[in-house]
Design a binder for these strands. Structure first.
Lengths: 185, 185
DNA sequence: ATCGACTTTCAGAAAAAAGTGAAAAATGGA
DNA sequence: TCCATTTTTCACTTTTTTCTGAAAGTCGAT
């Protein structure tokens, strides 16, 4: 067991899960390591301490500490304690829907809201100064409308509790089979 | 006009739109420049050639070429030609919904599908070898179910034409006001 | 107050990503 | 075919991001 890479055995599937999740996170603006730490906590299904994470993922203490803290800030992981143990433990939200909401909330806050604010400001300025061609303003308005729509959908999803959200999602998918004008490509 | 940064005039709002969009793109796994090029084409509302892009964004020819090609590959920008001119011109999809579909399609292909395939493979392997605790498998299954749901929603959205998609989205937002168990945070 | 167990911070190192520019390739007209 | 123009490629540079590790900080117990 000294070298876990030597055979594709017990830990292999878990390793691959972690790698896949890390990969996915990195195309989503989350650092690879942070996503890997989250994957590890999520798939472990129990609270781990910093040293566990360091050892399992072969990362430095500093990196583990930073990543764990960021995950806590995002709200997808929470701190836990074991009595008689001074170490801090960390545990992922057990339920994917809760996890999804935490991610959604954070991304809305960090991306949609600032972008919306910025775009609205630009539009106002453009209006006030009479600057810009009508066509440009139209495009700006479209963009703003789209982001606002995201914003509203996000807010509504965040207002649901996890169980209701799950059901809603399933209903939406089920009910969305209205025939369209053009077929999928 | 030699130095466009000298006063916050005519081009300023456009500049800021480009910057905002570039910012947003970069947290979405798209390179900042690529997003800026797209923003420029989108807000311009007309076909631009490589040199226009280079000049406006102050980037190298190589970078402009790469970014434009990537946007064409993504399907959010298409090539255009002017008669009597050998240069190639590029134009963004005029409609935000068409644009959104193109982005959705690409991200599904690049992120959801591979992740789903990888996770399903891991699950199968785990099942076959009898490896892993039940709880782990449960989490893996939850994750897969979630991604599958994304996949299905994505497919359905891609099957709609832009106009229908827009209406659908608006209806969804309007109709989603069923009262939830817990209030939004 | 001091100790020891544990955590956080952060300057610098390392790695990864993005950008440049000039050479090579492609294109289209004469 | 040949040439002028335009586009693409890619080895190399620059910038940005991430990671490390050791020092500094925290905190409860004694």
């Amino acid at each position: 067991m000294t070298n876990p890479r030597s055979k594709p055995s017990l830990t292999s599937a878990q390793d691959r899960f972690i790698a896949t999740w890390g990969q996915m996170g990195s195309t989503w603006g989350i650092s690879r390591t942070m996503a890997e730490v989250h994957a590890l906590l999520f798939i472990s299904g129990r609270a781990l301490c910093t040293d566990d994470v360091m050892e399992r993922l072969e990362i430095s203490r500093g990196n583990a500490s930073m990543s764990l803290r960021a995950l806590v800030d995002w709200g997808v992981v929470h701190r836990a304690h074991k009595r008689g143990d001074r170490k801090e433990y960390f545990e992922a939200a057990g339920d994917v829907w809760t996890m999804l909401q935490a991610i959604l909330r954070e991304r809305m806050k960090r991306e949609i809201h600032p972008a919306l604010a910025s775009l609205a400001e630009i539009r106002d300025e453009t209006r006030t100064t009479g600057e810009g061609v009508d066509e440009h303003n139209q495009r700006l308005d479209d963009m703003i409308a789209l982001l606002r729509l995201f914003d509203e959908m996000g807010s509504k999803l965040l207002a649901l509790d996890a169980q209701v959200m799950k059901e809603t999602a399933e209903t939406l998918v089920g009910g969305m089979d209205f025939q369209s004008g053009s077929p999928a490509s």
